[in-house]
């Protein structure tokens, strides 16, 4: 289950943060992941930050699939 969307932290205020994605801003609760900095990418589910995203891991995985594709092609 569970819709969750990646958004960027643009403001932190106590246990709340303003997050943004595609020009949409919304206020979320960061009780479940308080250790955040501005510009962090986070995963939002039902008004809560449930996890911080790791853009490096995303790049690594894409790189691996790019290699995979090249290996099959050749």
């Amino acid at each position: 289950m569970c819709l969750a969307v990646p958004m960027r932290v643009i403001e932190i205020n106590g246990n709340k943060a303003v997050v943004e994605s595609r020009g949409v801003e919304t206020l979320v609760d960061i009780t479940l992941y308080p250790d955040l900095d501005l510009d962090d990418m986070v995963l939002i589910h039902a008004g809560f930050v449930i996890e911080k995203l790791d853009p490096g891991a995303a790049r690594d995985i894409e790189e691996a699939w790019s290699e995979y594709e090249k290996a099959i092609e050749s």
Partner: peptide
């Protein structure tokens, strides 16, 4: 619009 995509993503 990007904003519409964003809200639709959030609200499913």
């Amino acid at each position: 619009k990007d904003e519409v995509k964003g809200v639709c993503g959030l609200l499913g």
